[in-house]
Amino acid sequence: MADHQPENEPLVEVRDLKVYFPVLAGVLRRKVGEVKAVDKVSLDIMQGETLGLVGESGCGKTTAGRAILRLNDITDGTVKIKGKYIHKSSLKEIRKIRPTMQMIFQDPQESLNPRMTVSAIISEPLTEHQNLSKKEREERVFDLMDSVGLNRDFATRYPHEFSGGQRQRIGIARALALNPELIVCDEPIAALDVSIQAQVVNLLEDLQEERNLTYLFISHDLGMVRHIATRVAVMYLGQIVEIGKSESLYSSPLHPYTEALLSAVPEADPEIERTRKAIVLSGDVPSPANPPEGCNFCNRCPKAFDICHKVEPTLTEIEPGRFVSCHLYNG
C-alpha cells in the first residue's frame, strides 16, 4: 500500500478536527454545554518525519493525538491516514488498520495490563492480527524485546516487576509488534526519570531510522521536542496557534504564546541563560468549556489589541511551511 502513495501526499492529513465532550449536569444528566478539547485542528504529518505537538497540560494535545488514532470519538472534521479517510470508519474497520498506527502512552505503569506477562502483552496483537505459529510468535516477541533493549529472560515477568524505563520499553515493543508506520507518542518520557528520558528518546530515534517510522510526538517538554522533532505544532486551548519547522520556530517564534512558551525554556549555555527574560503570562488558562470571545489567547496576550477580542484569527501560512494563527500577522 505504501508503494502506491504519492510522494507529496502526507501520511496523516487532519482537517478541522473537533473533539467536544458534553458537559452533563442535573438529576437527568442533561447536556448543559461542551468542552472543546480539540477545536478545528488541521495538520499534516509527512512520511518519516517527527511532528512535535507541544502545549501546556490540558490544552488538548493528548486528546488530539488519541482522536487521530480514533481512540477518542471525533465530533467533527476529517482524518486521512495513508490516503484513507478513517474518521467515519466503523470500529471494525478501524480495528483492521490498527496495525499501521500505534500509540505509546505516557504512563508505562498504568498502560500495561497488570495481569499479563511481558510476552503476553507484546504477543497479544500478533495473535489478533497475524497468523503466526506459536514458535514464530515467540521468536517475534524476542526480536522485539531485543530491539528495545529488554533482556529475553524477562518475557515471563509481570509489568510491576520492571522499572519505569523498562516498562516504557515494553510499551514501545508492544507498539512496534505489528510494524506500524505511524506512532503517536503521547508524552512517552514525562513519567520517567530524567536520566532515563534520554535513553528512551534515543531508542525512539534509532527505531525511527531503522524502521522508517513516522512520529507524532506529543510533549510539554519543549527542549526534548526541539531535539527530536522535524516540525513543531504549538497548541493552546484546543487549537493550533503555530506550526513550523523546528529550527525556525525555535529561533524566531511568531505567535506571542509560542514566544512566551519558549522564553520559559532554560538555556544550556549559562551566558545566554543569564540574559534570558521569561515572559510571564498573566491570568489563568480559560476553561475550554467557556473560551473567550475572539482569539482564544486574547485575555492573556501581552500584545493583544482591539480586534483580538472580537474576531477569531485563522491559521494562515506566513512563509512556506510556517503557519500562525494571530492577528499580528494577518495584515
Binding site: 488514532l69 490498527r98 498502560s111 495490563n113 489478533e128 507498539a175
Partner: peptide
C-alpha cells in the same frame, strides 16, 4: 490506560 492500550492494539 491499559484498556486504551488494548484498544490501540486493535483487539476486538
Amino acid at each position: 490506560d491499559y484498556v486504551r492500550t488494548a484498544r490501540a492494539k486493535g483487539l476486538r
